[in-house]
Simulated scan of single mutants.
Amino acid sequence: MILLHGDGDPTTPEGLRALYAPPRLPWLRVNMVSSLDGAATGSDGRSGTVNNEADGTVFHVLRELADVIVVGAGTATAETYGPAGVPIVIVSRSGRIPAGLRGAERGSVRLATVTDSPGLDDARSELGEDNVYVTGATEVDLATLVARLHEEGMRHVLSEGGPALLGSMLAAGVVDELCHTITPRLLAGDGGRIVAGPPTDVPVRLRTLIEHEGTLMACWLVAR
């Protein structure tokens, strides 16, 4: 790996962890990947078909550094999520828990949902009432969710999307940093971009940029 922008050594595990350490706490970063032509998913609807080994290395480093992972239910289902080394918070208005996250140890999987969620009672039974965050009537209030996580000691928040959740997080003004990998592939097709939702215009500033065999891994500081 070659560092093109920033300070540090990405060629060792320790150096890579230092490069991706959050500048301060609390901190919320979002990690996304796309092909060179902007496809966030492959033909099978999964980002797993877009990424590669270099992106996978960064993916695992970001998870190791995080206190909690926040992910949309659609992404968790499509990418067949299972429990991780830190708690996973599923964001879902319907309150449905992806199959791969059911039956997990209490506290390792949590849910952020709304008061009129059809799956609310089932989620409370499955996860435990303390692990279900109801933060809005019809839309998940992401600012309230993030504040709740901070209160519970989870100050380094990592979101893994998907695009709709990233769009909502940007609109809510809760994102500090976007880590975005561009893999050297051209996919065309119907794969959407890394951000979905109403038009927005959020300025960003480059913090780090690493290149490895054509793969570009950047971290962008988000204006708030």
Results as ranks from 00 to 15, higher is better:
99 A>V: 11
190 D>R: 12
147 A>H: 10
27 W>C: 09
128 G>C: 12
205 R>F: 06
222 V>S: 04
181 T>F: 12
106 R>W: 06
161 G>P: 01
21 A>V: 02
217 M>C: 07
180 H>K: 00
56 G>N: 15
60 H>W: 08
20 Y>N: 08
169 M>H: 00
105 E>K: 04
195 V>E: 02
185 R>Q: 11
99 A>D: 13
222 V>M: 02
128 G>K: 09
19 L>V: 14
40 A>Y: 05
36 L>I: 02
94 S>P: 11
200 T>M: 12
184 P>L: 00
30 V>P: 07
204 V>P: 03
159 S>H: 04
84 A>F: 04
39 A>G: 14
167 G>P: 06
148 R>T: 15
125 S>D: 13
174 V>T: 14
189 G>R: 07
143 A>I: 01
218 A>H: 02
223 A>F: 02
14 E>G: 13
139 E>D: 15
144 T>H: 11
212 H>W: 06
26 P>T: 13
51 N>W: 14
77 T>I: 13
29 R>H: 10
186 L>I: 08
21 A>D: 15
89 V>R: 01
92 S>L: 08
46 R>L: 13
190 D>Q: 13
128 G>I: 11
183 T>N: 03
151 E>R: 12
196 A>D: 11
194 I>T: 13
74 G>R: 08
155 R>N: 06
91 V>P: 07
76 A>S: 11
146 V>I: 15
185 R>E: 12
75 T>W: 00
95 G>Q: 08
4 L>G: 09
126 E>K: 03
4 L>N: 04
29 R>T: 04
204 V>M: 10
20 Y>S: 04
194 I>H: 02
144 T>Q: 12
48 G>Q: 10
92 S>G: 08
99 A>L: 05
40 A>K: 05
67 D>V: 01
199 P>D: 07
111 L>Q: 01
6 G>T: 12
44 D>V: 05
155 R>V: 08
43 S>M: 12
154 M>A: 09
24 R>T: 13
23 P>E: 09
135 T>G: 12
130 D>E: 15
208 T>D: 03
89 V>F: 00
76 A>H: 03
2 I>E: 15
47 S>A: 15
45 G>K: 08
67 D>N: 03
161 G>M: 09
127 L>P: 12
52 N>E: 14
172 A>C: 13
98 P>W: 00
7 D>F: 06
192 G>I: 06
144 T>K: 14
216 L>Y: 02
87 P>N: 02
179 C>M: 10
217 M>H: 00
113 T>V: 09
36 L>R: 04
29 R>V: 03
30 V>M: 10
73 A>P: 15
164 A>C: 01
118 P>Q: 07
141 D>M: 07
211 E>P: 02
97 I>Q: 07
142 L>S: 13
88 I>R: 00
222 V>T: 01
139 E>R: 15
164 A>E: 09
58 V>S: 04
175 V>A: 07
14 E>N: 14
122 D>C: 06
79 E>Y: 07
75 T>I: 03
73 A>Y: 07
208 T>N: 14
182 I>L: 06
50 V>N: 08
68 V>R: 03
